[in-house]
Design a protein around this nucleic acid. Structure first.
Length: 976
DNA sequence: GAGGCATTTCACCGG
DNA sequence: GAAATGCCTC
């Protein structure tokens, strides 16, 4: 059979092979949309005989186009693939404008104004016009007008007086762009539309047009699609109106209908099978989206098993929410026996700003993560500086870029000087750059004489730029971008500048610069490979293309790609030493579109966050939630802090659940706490992910680090027993967070055990560092590692064994196995594991879990609070290995006995938490576990050590939080 | 004293 | 990270 159709289901094949010339493929999440579109491209080439250069394929992001290229290279070979006209609308338009822009009077060498430039220009005009409109608002409105093809005059005609202010700004903005020969994002599309309308011959070769993510196109893009296809009218679009989340960028869902109206011969194919998510997740997501009654009903059929119900978790506050995510990730990793790794988790946020608490919690507990959709690589200051230099070199008319670097690094050119220069340039009606040059070369002068120092600084700048331009002229190939970056960085002594300016993270900043160079190099390599200039447009007879100096062209192309980059090119990977990136992803929901993860967390599902308080269209917010939920393959967690100090609605910051999750839905489709991860659940996860089921042995191995096998640190209602400590919530931030959990007051009140990372400890790094990461990974991969300092740092939740006197430091591997009876005992234990029927009571056993939160905060009983104790290893008390239970469970850890004296125990904790110096003796440890089972919950079973149990006992009796906090604070201050 | 530099403060959808 | 304020140099 045709290899192109391999692995496609019936509906997908129908779409791929459809003979309809106008085809709409409606593809819900996880239905194989990209696969289908890719196959369609391949099919058109091979079965219809189209030449690749006659096929235009538009994607929404650069990443999507890259992925598509990769897939196509496999299907049809790189040779054909490289000749396709494939890219984002913006990049395709840019290509056409570079080649044919002269036909509509576009000046050669135009630059692209990115949104920072745009904002800067608008800010300036607003200031000049003394308008009261907010910069961002003006930017958005202007862009919206442009996206609808409305010129300032058109807006003026139809708008009332109150718009006149905006119209003025809009006008000025447009002339500023024109003066600098810049096009903003909207212009790229608009001008290309103008071009193709006036000169359709430019696309007369086009046989077929394909558009991905069609629901995100705006009117102009829709028109462009039609213009591209004007000759032969063969269009395939793929999209899903339910995933339209770019209305704020003027995306128009109605384009689907509009297209059907325009082309009466439109064929519509529905893909309904979902290959991504568990049935339970789809059901929940489906119910969310179906609340929108205006939307045409569409099926979403699960191909996977039902799986376990998604979770809707209530937590006391955002901090606890972040800690809970940490705990759940650890629990999932531990209880699935290697099935899930860090890279299988994603935290999807409505707003990037919600990430801070989560990042802090991750950092503190050693969970490696990468941020996506936050600050983009190209937006980092140090990168931006170099890019702006290059933009000036490439296009001296780029006054905004010039303004950004005119005094960076500082060269004594201050506000006053800049004012003189910009005013002068404006009066002379010449670009800022030319004016500056004239001034320092004595051909012109400013109204007020410039300071000597400033003048000298300008000289230096002009010389640098001129030298760079010279360099560029000499460089006639694709290496130009890299050559320039190196040249400029060198001449600026950029590294020294970074060291001076950012002493704290100079190395990571310099690493970003290296990464930028690396990317420039890659672009060069990429372009040289396809000697044929894959990016070039096909030559059309009778229409002349403009040619440019190839070094310049390489540079402008590089800069354009940067400007148009919508996604984050992952950074930091450049650093060596980074291990295979096993990281949790933190992303905005918007940036997560099209992606999937085995486990997805969606925090902050409260009113005001989703729907966002400033959202204009509620339906879009609902779709956003739908998109987030449908990213999950096997496990989906939604959560809400019941209080959110600043943003909550109530006076005490109480939040209300998003209206998209009405009670009826949450009751039937969600559970209130994380699922118990017994083997059936684990196997279902494995099956959904199409991964091998882990062995019980593997599952078992992970448990040893686990504080609790259940999501039970907070009550399902999201409460923590705060009665005794009211400052808990505020105490965690900087220090460690862990507030001691005092959850059920009857139980664990004591210190947690802790230890591990350190917030305070001097020996352990406090900040997130690769050390953490690596240790953590190591542990994750090697649960049996000795618990040494690294392990602690990594946040493993293991208790340190209290020591017998001989062992000072933690368990060794041997000791762990001994502890559990050695490897040989494994078999015996197996049955024990995740056992199901859940043990009757599951209380949070606390101590260990505390660790995660913070080691630092150990609680010391008041009497001891004045002195610090050195950490001692806990001596593992002997656990009972034999199954003690009638149901066949073996408790790995003995339940704690009340025997212990609280004071001692807590001392232990403290020690471990603080790493301070005195040696204590481990005395308490003598407790005997055997008696353990009674009275304790099975949960504890999974605790790795008996110790935890021991500690438990004390907790109950401790009620001194306040003093402890005081102590902690002091610790923080002194030692931090 | 003007202008430049350093420090502090506030706020922040989304691409 | 940008605006606002205060300190230092020419």
């Amino acid at each position: 059979m045709d290899p192109i159709l391999d692995g496609l289901n019936h509906a997908q094949r129908e779409a791929v092979t459809s003979s309809g010339s106008i085809l709409q493929v409606l593809a819900p999440p996880g239905s194989g949309k990209t696969k289908t579109l890719t196959a369609r491209v391949a099919y058109l080439l091979s079965h219809h005989g189209y030449q690749p250069q006659d096929v235009i394929c538009c994607t929404f992001t650069i990443k999507a186009s890259r992925e598509m290229r990769e897939r196509l290279a496999k299907l049809i070979g790189e040779k054909l693939e490289s000749r396709l006209i494939l890219g984002t609308f913006h990049s395709i338009c840019r290509r056409y404008l570079v080649k044919y822009g002269y036909l509509i009077g576009l000046r050669k060498g135009f630059g692209i104004a990115d949104s920072d430039d745009t904002r800067a220009i608008i800010r300036r005009t607003i200031k000049r016009l003394k308008s009261s409109i907010e910069v961002k608002a003006a930017q958005g409105r202007i862009s919206r007008h442009k996206a609808h093809g409305l010129t300032p005059d058109a807006v003026a005609d139809r708008a009332k007086a109150e718009e006149s202010e905006l119209v003025d700004i809009y006008r000025e903005y447009e002339s500023s762009l024109a003066a600098s020969n810049l096009l903003d994002y909207d212009d790229l599309l608009l001008r290309c539309g103008d071009l193709l309308r006036d000169h359709p011959e430019c696309v007369s070769n086009v046989q077929a047009v394909l558009v991905d993510e069609f629901q995100d196109t705006n009117i102009i893009q829709y028109e462009l699609m039609n213009l591209f296809a004007s000759k032969n009218r063969r269009i395939t679009i793929v999209g899903d109106p339910d995933q339209s989340i770019y209305g704020f960028r003027s995306a128009e869902i109605q384009n689907l209908k509009r297209m059907q109206r325009l082309y009466s011969n439109t064929t519509v194919v529905l893909l309904e099978d979902n290959y991504r998510s568990a049935g339970s997740i789809l059901n929940a997501a489906q119910e969310v989206i179906e609340q929108d009654t205006s939307r045409p009903a569409k099926a979403l059929l699960a191909t996977h098993t039902f799986g376990t119900l998604p979770v809707l978790r209530r937590l006391p506050n955002p901090n606890a929410e972040a800690q809970w995510i940490v705990l759940e990730i650890k629990r999932c990793v531990a209880m699935t026996g290697g099935l899930l790794r860090m890279s299988d988790f994603a935290v999807l946020l409505r707003s990037a700003s919600l990430s801070t608490q989560i990042e802090t919690a991750f950092g503190r507990s050693g969970i490696p993560y990468k941020m996506v959709g936050g600050r983009k690589f190209f937006d980092r200051t140090e990168v931006k500086i170099l890019l702006n230099y290059m933009r000036v070199v490439s296009h001296t008319g780029h006054s905004d870029a010039l303004m950004n670097i005119i005094n960076v690094p500082p060269r004594r050119i201050g506000d006053e000087t800049i004012k003189q220069l910009t005013n002068g340039a404006e009066k002379a009606k010449i670009p800022l750059w030319n004016f500056i040059k004239d001034v320092i070369q004595g051909r012109r002068s400013t109204e007020k004489k410039l300071q000597k120092a400033a003048e000298q600084g300008l000289c230096v700048l002009v010389n640098l730029i001129e030298a760079s331009r010279q360099k560029l002229q000499e460089c006639e190939d694709a290496s130009a971008p890299r050559v320039l970056i190196e040249f400029i960085a060198e001449r600026l002594s950029f590294q020294e500048y970074l060291i001076r300016t950012y002493p704290l993270d100079e190395d990571s900043r310099w690493a970003n610069v290296k990464e930028l160079m690396h990317q420039a190099t890659e672009v060069a390599a990429f372009e040289e490979e396809g000697v044929d200039k894959e990016m070039d447009l096909p030559v059309i007879e009778g229409v002349e293309q403009q040619q440019a100096h190839s070094g310049e062209e390489a540079l402008t192309r590089f800069l354009a790609n940067v400007a148009l980059a919508t996604e984050i090119t992952t950074k930091e990977e450049a650093k060596e030493g980074d291990q295979p990136t096993e990281k949790v992803t933190i992303s905005t929901i918007h940036a997560a579109k099209g992606l999937e993860w085995p486990v997805v967390f969606v925090p902050a599902v409260y009113n005001g966050s989703i729907p966002h308080s400033r959202a204009e269209v509620v339906e879009e917010e609902r779709r956003l939630l739908y998109v987030a939920m449908t990213r999950a393959q096997a496990l989906l967690y939604l959560s809400i802090p019941i209080r959110q100090p600043r943003l909550g609605e109530g006076e005490d910051g109480a939040t209300t659940l998003t209206p998209f999750l009405p009670p009826k839905l949450t009751k039937s489709r969600f559970r209130a706490t994380g699922p118990s991860l017994h083997e059936k659940v684990v196997y279902a996860i494995a099956d959904i992910l199409r991964r091998p089921r882990p062995s019980l042995e593997d599952i078992y191995k992970g448990l040893e680090f686990l504080p609790s096998t259940l999501d039970d640190r907070w009550t399902p209602e999201g409460e923590e027993d705060r009665s005794k400590v009211d400052d808990i919530s505020t105490s965690h931030d900087a220090s460690g967070e862990p507030n001691p959990k005092r959850r059920r007051s009857d139980m664990n009140q004591g210190p947690k055990s802790t230890t591990y990372f350190s917030s305070t400890g001097s020996t352990i790094p406090t900040t997130v560092s690769t050390g953490f990461t690596s240790a953590r990974d190591y542990i994750a991969a090697n649960p049996e590692l000795p618990a040494d300092a690294d392990a602690d740092a990594a946040g493993a939740n293991k208790l340190k064994p209290l020591s017998n006197a001989s062992r000072k430091d933690g368990l060794t591997q041997a000791s762990i196995s001994n502890f559990f009876g050695g490897p040989g005992s494994l078999q015996k234990r197996e049955p024990v594991l995740p056992s199901y029927p859940q043990p009757p009571s599951r209380r949070y056993e606390g101590p260990i879990s505390q660790n995660q939160r913070s080691g630092a905060r150990s609680i010391v009983p008041a009497p001891l609070s004045s002195h610090r104790v050195q950490p001692r290893p806990l001596v593992p008390t002997r656990p009972t290995l034999e199954p003690t239970d009638s149901n066949g469970y073996t408790w790995l850890a003995a339940p704690s006995k009340p025997t212990l004296k609280p004071a001692r125990v807590s001392m232990t904790q403290e020690q471990s938490g603080n790493n301070t110096s005195v040696g204590g003796t481990a005395g308490a440890e003598e407790v005997k576990p055997e008696s353990s089972t009674r009275g304790f919950q099975p949960v504890s079973t999974f605790h790795s050590t008996t110790i935890s149990m021991i500690q438990q006992a004390p907790r109950r009796t401790l009620g001194i939080r306040r003093s402890m906090n005081g102590w902690q604070d002091r610790m923080k201050r002194d030692g931090g």
